[in-house]
Write a protein that binds this DNA or RNA. Structure first.
Lengths: 206, 206
DNA sequence: TGTTTGACTATTTAATTTAACGGGTCAAAG
DNA sequence: CTTTGACCCGTTAAATTAAATAGTCAAACA
């Protein structure tokens, strides 16, 4: 049997591995998490890990993917629950912020090392980016259809929106040695993002 | 006589030193520019350099300061020339972009090394930041006074504006090895900043 | 007196070597 | 089908050493 097939009890084992990996990554980041450590946490051998995942990259990609899927799921539920599209954007920023708070170390992966990771990782990143842009585009479209927003080029606007959020995060967190993204920093990021959101919405409601 | 006093011909000598330092820094950045090299370019001894500037940090700060002053001067002239405040913002972004294009390597200074520089450098940075914020605040105020913009909290808005521009620059230039901020990257940054500017102005013209 | 310099030092940084570690494989066992 | 210990090899980290570099200063000079 091959690891890629997810059936029954095998699926459960994969889940426990993902969970262990997620904990390690969430605390120490990609670089500082070894396969040996994950195996030790699960009290299995490293070779067994390699029986379920062909390589480190695949395991880590799977972790990121599952985390992102959960985030997307929350977002979708939220968009169905809310009526006002400006509130959707607001909630989106809030959810995304919480998500990144628990997943910081993941983002701490050094750029230089990203390039070392095979195309697989880069592909995942761009896919998630696209998916995220799709969600925002959807909200903007809905805003236009319901007469709440006036916006031409929803796609371009959505990309700009995401890049500005990303940029504000970077600018604030930039010169922190390493684990030192403090609670205040997170609050500062949230504040700036809210301020931007206000401005953004204002530009849409014309 | 002490280097800090800038009179007559002494001033001229300081200028030539600043010019030589500026060239080196502009090409190789702070870290990779040595006092020896600057001295060699001027065909003077390193000790002479230290006669005019107490240390490397002071010389480099002086270079950055003079560059920034020139930029600010251009901006002020521009604001007096133009009537429409939205055009002022547009021109500001354009000027700033050109300025940073010629001064990239300066920004390449590693954050970790910035902290090594004494408070002096950090002070300069915050002072310039404040000055820049003042310029934008001025434009926003003028916009409100002339009825072109409606904006409460001009200061906060100005800071956000600058941080978003900075953020967009970072996000685009982030994962470039070193000297590889290509012309395309610069164009991409400019494009995103223009797009944001459009949105920003829209939110102000209510 | 103001300016320039070569020779010097003390610290940082870079280059070099060496040891440890981590990703990944595999034959064999359960 | 699943698990494992033992193994390999390339990368990284630690330790050691060599080279630069920021900064000083007494002496020369204009």
């Amino acid at each position: 049997m091959v690891a890629i097939i997810h059936d029954g009890e095998n699926r459960a084992k994969l889940e426990t591995i993902l969970e262990a990996a997620r904990k390690r990554i969430g605390t120490y980041g990609f670089e500082k998490t070894t396969m040996q450590e994950i195996a030790a946490d699960l009290r299995i051998s490293k070779a067994t890990l390699y029986y379920y995942f062909p390589d480190k990259e695949s395991l880590f990609s799977a972790v990121v993917e599952s985390e992102m899927e959960e985030f997307f799921s929350l977002v979708r539920k939220m968009t169905q629950r809310l009526k006002r599209t400006d509130h959707m954007l607001q909630e989106y920023v809030s959810l995304r912020h919480d998500f990144f708070r628990t997943f910081v170390n993941l983002t701490r992966l050094r750029i230089s090392n990203i390039s070392q990771f095979n195309t697989q990782f880069r592909d995942l990143k761009t896919r998630l980016r696209r998916e995220e842009a799709g969600l925002i585009t959807g909200i903007l479209r809905k805003g236009r259809e319901t007469g709440q927003f006036s916006c031409s080029d929803e796609e371009g606007t959505a990309l700009l929106f995401l890049e500005v959020l990303h940029g504000l995060r970077m600018v604030t967190a930039q010169n922190k040695p390493f684990p030192e993204i403090s609670a205040e920093d997170f609050e500062a990021i949230a504040g700036k993002q809210r301020q931007f959101l206000q401005l953004f919405v204002k530009s849409l409601i014309k």
